[in-house]
Design a protein around this nucleic acid. Structure first.
Lengths: 205, 205
DNA sequence: CTGCCCCTGTGATTTCAGTCACATTGTGAG
DNA sequence: CTCACAATGTGACTGAAATCACAGGGGCAG
């Protein structure tokens, strides 16, 4: 795949080096890309599709943290890759997804030699950290109705559509809530004209 | 202050460079070191004392994220400093605290020239990211009683004492809960022989 | 000693969210 | 068309935590 236009800030030399050493990989919707406790041997750049990054607890509950889309990098894979540590999160493809895996051995060289790469890594850390902060804000300070609104907006924002094609159950899972609660809150939102409900699809006003 | 032994991994040359350019600063218990929306012009290293990093919302609620102690660096100040962005968190001294402020202009040079600095920064990112993950875990998956236990252990752990010298109200603030709830849960813990309650002080079993 | 303020204990009530139970509806396979 | 199944709607109940109201009690300033 021709991915260069996703990273216009990279120097040609850097792109060449990545191309020579990195491996492209495809995942189908639903594939688990990384799981809790797994060792990480590469830094992951997303070229196409969408990856869900979430936390799982031992009782089967899960909790969505954020999404990665084309042009994003996985901050956790960067940190873990550099230190050869295990990851503490789950990553799952939401759609058909293409990624570029850059072996850790290359990281040090890229960081020291290419300013654009260094900037990109810092930028990635910052974005993820900020997203994590807003996640903390939401669960610490907001009720489920506000969290649901935030979730729908974020989901629609990334896909650039006015539709969220998910069942109530899937939304409940992402928010670590239950289907009935989400159904009821969605009904209330419909009464407030914020959404229109369809089967497997929510239309944002 | 002689802080070199806190960072034994730093090369002499690196230490010298920091010494020449950084500014030491003291804060008293209760001083706000950084507030939401403030621009950051320096990276902060903690030399002595203890800093509380927390999130504040517009309705006066607050929520503790983690502490920084001697030898720690503020990951957020690093990220923000490099990008000259505003911070999204509050930092407050819990005790008398000494910090070293390294001007952002120096960051790029340190990162590219000193491997030990680069490693330190990466290590800092990782630790804070992990702490933030465990914060998310706690509020997403745990009830208040478990969160309280976790809070007490963490608080005592950092101070290396078996005592937590806080009023119930302060604990409630940190957990974004209310005083009565904390009092009741502490009573239950006392009945389970996990703690002994005193005025302004909790003794861990 | 006394008055005041802060810290703590505790009951009553309310609200939000999770759970259980079951009804209804939409859709695709055959 | 019909059946099976997944998605959705809804009432009843439960439990966790927030809130309200108020009662003691300890410590300190004067």
């Amino acid at each position: 795949m021709n991915w260069k236009q996703l990273f216009p800030q990279f120097e040609p030399e850097l792109i060449e080096l990545i191309e020579k050493n990195a491996v492209e990989r495809s995942f189908n919707a639903g594939d688990v890309i990384m799981r809790t406790g797994q060792y990480i041997k590469s830094t992951v750049l997303v070229l196409e599709g969408r990856i869900k990054i979430y936390r799982e607890n031992n009782e089967g509950g899960e909790f969505l943290m954020y999404y990665l889309g084309a042009g994003d990098a996985c901050a956790i894979s960067m940190i873990c890759a550099i230190q050869s540590k295990t990851s503490e999160i789950m990553a799952q493809a939401e759609e058909s997804t293409e990624v570029l895996m850059i072996p850790i051995q290359l990281m040090d060289e890229l960081m020291s030699k290419y300013k654009s790469w260094y900037q990109f890594v810092i930028q990635t850390y910052r974005s993820r950290f900020d997203e994590l902060l807003s996640v903390v804000d939401n669960i610490a300070f907001r009720n489920m109705d506000e969290r649901l609104e935030f979730y729908l907006k974020r989901h629609a924002g990334k896909t650039k559509k006015k539709f969220v094609e998910l069942s109530h159950q899937q939304i409940a899972d992402d928010l670590n809530s239950s289907r009935e609660v989400i159904s009821r809150l969605l009904k209330k939102m419909e009464q407030r004209q914020l959404v229109k409900l369809h089967r497997n699809m929510i239309e944002l006003a």
